[in-house]
């Protein structure tokens, strides 16, 4: 296959970016998308040019590092698939492909196609956990979880933290990411004691980091490589509303004033 790539190049966060065009001959359909970029990078290095910087690691769709917007769709055209698992057989000879970084204010571009997604870590840090110290745990089977709830919790918990939801959202909102973590714990008995505080704190941090609001476009769900449902956003909205009128909220306000 012969392809024309338009790739976003940006020296650093403050530099102005631009598209650069590369022609790729002999693309094999068994290649993954990133392997195709590897081939390009090898070529660029040998020509003495800087290769295209992009995030990637496990290349099996689970680490969440890869983060390309391909023809306007985060992770590209194949449903429920990360960029690293997208293969060139999804494209055809002569295609023109636009490759851009994940775009959102909360994800500033670091270089070329690499963006800073540390905001996600800060959100988890704010409350995406169950406060149990090592050694405190009771016998595992003393906590029963109905299969249905465990399955739903797992549906939410499989989020890989790639940020495609934010990249796809016209508002750059992180609602699906936060909702996935909130719902994962909301469906489990272990998550109940901190349920209200968790949703309040995580949403607050999400806002601090400059993500947009939810307009119920559902683009996040469509772009999510793990196909996490927006029903979890609905659950988070409800939990947040309840929590906003709870003792936990009063306590948070008191602590902030203090």
């Amino acid at each position: 296959m012969k392809l024309t790539l338009h790739i976003w190049r940006q020296k650093n966060t403050n530099a102005k970016g631009h598209f650069e065009t590369y022609i790729m001959d002999n693309v094999i359909e068994d290649m993954s998308f990133l392997e195709m970029l590897d081939v390009l990078n090898e070529r660029l290095i040998l020509e003495g040019k800087e290769p295209v910087a992009f995030d990637h690691d496990c290349r099996e769709g689970i680490c969440g590092a890869c983060s390309l917007t391909i023809n306007g769709i985060p992770h590209g055209p194949e449903k429920g698939t990360t960029t690293c698992q997208l293969h060139m057989r999804k494209f055809k000879d002569g295609d023109e492909i636009w490759i851009e970084p994940f775009r959102a204010r909360a994800f500033p571009v670091i270089k070329d196609l690499i963006v800073d997604r540390s905001a996600f870590d800060r959100i988890i840090q704010a409350g995406g956990f169950i406060s149990v110290n090592t050694g405190q745990a009771p016998e595992a089977n003393s906590i029963l979880v109905p299969k249905k709830n465990a399955d739903t919790a797992m549906d939410a918990a499989q989020c890989i933290g790639c940020g495609a939801c934010v990249a796809a959202c016209p508002n750059g909102a992180a609602m699906l990411f936060v909702a996935a973590k909130v719902s994962h714990f909301a469906y489990l008995p272990q998550g109940q004691p901190e349920r209200k505080l968790r949703v309040l704190k995580m949403v607050e941090q999400m806002q601090k980091d400059g993500f947009g609001n939810c307009s119920n476009y559902y683009e996040c769900e469509a772009a999510c490589p793990k196909q996490i449902s927006v029903k979890f956003i609905a659950l988070m909205n409800r939990d947040y509303l309840k929590a906003s009128f709870s003792d936990e909220k009063s306590e948070l306000i008191r602590n902030q004033l203090a």
């Binding site: 595992a140 089977n141 029963l144 299969k147 797992m154 272990q190």
Partner: peptide, 22 residues
């Protein structure tokens, strides 16, 4: 065995039987 206990307490959604047991 302690590892399983610890992970369950952290909210790791291990597979369950219909009864709710692991």
């Amino acid at each position: 065995n302690n590892i399983i206990d610890q992970c369950v307490a952290q909210g790791v959604p291990f597979a369950r039987e219909y009864s709710g047991y692991l």
